[in-house]
Design a protein around this nucleic acid. Structure first.
Lengths: 307, 307
DNA sequence: TATTATCCATCTGTTTTAGCTATGGAGTTA
DNA sequence: TAACTCCATAGCTAAAACAGATGGATAATA
């Protein structure tokens, strides 16, 4: 039983006549007869009474009419869904690390609503390693992660570069220091994200370049906790400029580095084997647009203070 | 899009692997690949992300999974219905003339319940001409009509022959007459069924053979009216012996003809082009059994007095 | 009744296509 | 680097869908 056979069958059932049904099906009458006979042989049931003048459905034929209509109806719906659904809601699955997701994703959504772009955006905030695995596993169209990234099998496009700032409580001496570089952080207590955090690793790398091992007293699971601890004076941290928010706790101070200007690159990553669908392509375009027309892409791409 | 392609597609979706899906589908891997590519070309949509390790559904692929499952599910249900339904309820459409239906059909149903035969019997009581048209039109498996019948294109099997009896009211002279033949009816008033009735025509034929034209004062639409009128003494009638019933009106007398023994043959008629399904075959067997093991089939086949 | 028209099945040849084997490229693992 | 896995491509075979011609049976018409 195949769909084309069911279409032929319904044509005969409709016209009660093999010859006319064949014409309407754009095949010859013998071909249509043969397919009906094939169906009858497969079912072990005669489907039509061949009376002289017309073909009349048998009981089995009546059953098959209902079934065939339902089957073909489902097929039509499915076909329509395949044609229309991607147009109605181009979907994209995007993963982003904790220090990027809360700032970049809202900017993308704002761009969409401002420019009347319809995009069903699914996001997944997680550690870089998990996101990369999901890119390999086919669960994500894009991952927004920090560089450097040594995954030669993946396509990597650096979206922008953002400066890292010192974050301390207002009462901390460094809140008003003139000179800020990594060397002055040598004896400070660090508040960092978890060990899987790429930002934390990067900060430790900067410390290493400044020839010291940071003393890490606090490992936090989320940015808000880092900020709160810093505001309370439990230690210092280093965060991207874009992490600054109007909802930050009272007494939290962001200070630009006066030397060294540490920064990090954020890249858009995809698997080359993954089909670049409409939604995925759209997201990439919007991401580049949100980053700004500035082709150097060397400054914070979205409003540092969204409020 | 064809059903076999959808089966292949679902296999790939299930295993995430073209090679294994091909094995489970009992075809070679290139054949399966080709069919998936055909589907993708037809839809204008990629269905799988071909990542190195595994094949992962695209958004379009996910839509098709749902659709394909529904389509194939409908196909399975339809197939099951075609296999099971005819077994659960073998159906048959039978037409019978007015003088046969009220006696023969109950006998068939009684036989079914007595012998635990499951048969979905649809009956249609109507004039012979209408029944024959419906046999040609494919609406009936069988028609139970009286002979003679000149329809060379139909298959005719004489089921039984039943005597015709004189029917009069108890107060009528003929209720006690010694000699009863058609000649003594010459001056009687006849109560007959409508002009389309074959029994009425047959009675007129018998009258003609006895060399007189019957005086027909009453044309009735149904047997009960004929009996009632006869019981009231409005005239005489001639009915098959099997028409005798326990519920007949008071004072109705059935008299056997002492000469000539008029009778009529009842035949089972079918269209040779009509498929003889399980139900239709069953009905014919039962009809023959009800008529009785008596191969001569020359006597009333079912209880003359069902009560 | 004879004739013509209609309708479906069968026969035969053609074309399409599903399917197979062999192969190669890309990616993955050892 | 080498062995291995996975999918796509190429060339071929075989099955089957399809078309045209024909015939038998039935139905409409003269």
């Amino acid at each position: 039983m195949e769909l084309y056979q069911l279409r032929y069958f319904l044509a005969v059932a409709e016209y009660g006549n093999f010859t006319k049904a064949a014409q309407r099906s754009f095949i010859s009458q013998p071909s249509l007869s043969q397919q009906i006979l094939n169906l009858e042989e497969e079912f072990g049931q005669q489907l039509f009474h061949r009376l002289g003048r017309k073909a009349v459905l048998t009981e089995a034929g009546k059953i098959l009419v209902n079934g065939a209509q339902r089957i073909l109806s489902e097929a039509d719906h499915t076909l329509a869904a395949l044609k229309n659904d991607p147009l109605l809601g181009p979907e994209v699955h995007v993963g982003a690390i904790q220090t990027v997701a809360p700032f970049f994703i809202p900017a993308v959504l704002a761009y969409c609503s401002a420019n009347d772009v319809r995009l069903r955006l699914h996001t997944h905030e997680d550690f870089r390693r998990t996101l990369i695995e999901e890119v390999y596993g086919g669960k994500l169209d894009w991952a927004l992660v920090s560089m450097p990234l040594s995954e030669p099998r993946l396509q990597v496009e650096i979206l922008y570069s953002e400066p890292l700032w010192l974050v301390v409580g207002a009462s901390h001496p460094l809140a008003k220091a003139e000179k800020i570089n990594f060397s002055v952080l040598r004896n400070e207590t660090f508040i960092l994200l978890g060990e899987a955090s790429t930002l934390a690793s990067q900060i430790q790398r900067y410390c290493g370049e400044a020839d010291f091992e940071p003393r890490i007293d606090h490992r936090c699971g989320q940015l808000a906790t880092v900020k709160k601890f810093a505001a309370m004076g439990l230690g210092i941290s280093v965060l991207p400029q874009s992490a600054r928010s109007a909802t930050d706790p009272e007494g939290l101070v962001f200070r630009k580095f006066t030397e060294g200007s540490p920064s990090r690159d954020i890249a858009l990553v995809r698997h080359p084997g993954r089909h670049l669908g409409q939604g995925a392509g759209l997201f990439a375009q919007i991401a580049r647009a949100v980053v700004g027309p500035d082709s150097t892409r060397s400054r914070p791409p979205f409003p540092a203070n969204p409020a």
